[in-house]
Amino acid sequence: MTESQPEHGRYLFAFARGLDPARLAGVLGLRGAPLEVVEHRDLQAVVCSVDLEEFGEDRLKEHLEDMEWLEEVARTHHDVVYAVSEVGAVAPMRLVTICSDDASVRGRVETLHTQLSEALSRVEGRREWSVKVYATRPAQPETVDAGRPASGAAYLQRKREQAAQRRSTGDQHLREADEIHQTLARSVVATRVLQPQDPRLTGRADTMILNGAYLVPTGETDGFRAVVSRLAELNPTLEIELNGPWPPYSFATLE
C-alpha cells in the first residue's frame, strides 16, 4: 500500500521578529486560508496552508506561466507582507517558497538564524521607497525632415547625426540618473539600483533612466520626500516618481 501524499504545505510569506500574532487577526493568506505564525527562538515565520493540488511541484510550474494566477498570488503575497510590515520587523520572502510542515519551517529558521537576524536588524524601523526617473520624450522630432535626401551620402550623414544625437542624449541621461541617485544615496541608510522596467510593462512611452530602491528610517520620511521634491524642481526635463512605502524586499536579503 502506498504512503498517502501530504495534501497541504506551508507557504512562507515572510520572516519577522517582535511580531504580535494577534495584530494579524483578520488578515487572510492564499485562497482564504488564515495566516499563522510559526515561532522558533526569537524569530517568527508568517505562513498559511496551501493545497498541494495547486501549489505542488507539478501544477506550480504550469501556474507560474499563467499571468492571471500569478497576479492573484503575487498580490496576495504582497498584501500579507505589507500587513506584517505594519506591525513588526519583516524580511519578505520571494514568491512560492513552500515547506512540508512547521517542523521544516522551524528547521529553516534554525539553519538561517544568524543571517535572518542580520537581515531583520538591517531593516528594522526602516522602509523601502521606490524612486523612478523618466526622461520625457522631446516635443519635436530630433531632426527636421528635410524631404528626400539629395544623395545616398546625405542620407547616411543624416543617419549618423541622428545616432550621435541619440548617443549624446543617452549619455546625458546616464549622468542625470547618476547624479540623482548619488544625491538620494547621501540621505538614506542603503540603496539598491534595480533594472529599469520595460516600457511595455510600465505602459509609458518615455524612457526609464533610473529605478532605485532607498531604505529610509521611518522617522526620516519627510526629509527624504523633501529631497525628492527638490530634485524634481532641479530637473524639469525629467519626471521623478516616488512610490511607497514598501516592505524592504530589496534590503532584507541573506548575505
Partner: peptide
Amino acid sequence: VLDKGIIIAGDI
C-alpha cells in the same frame, strides 16, 4: 516578489 526578498529552497 519574483526577484527580490529572501530566496531559499523550500520543500516543494
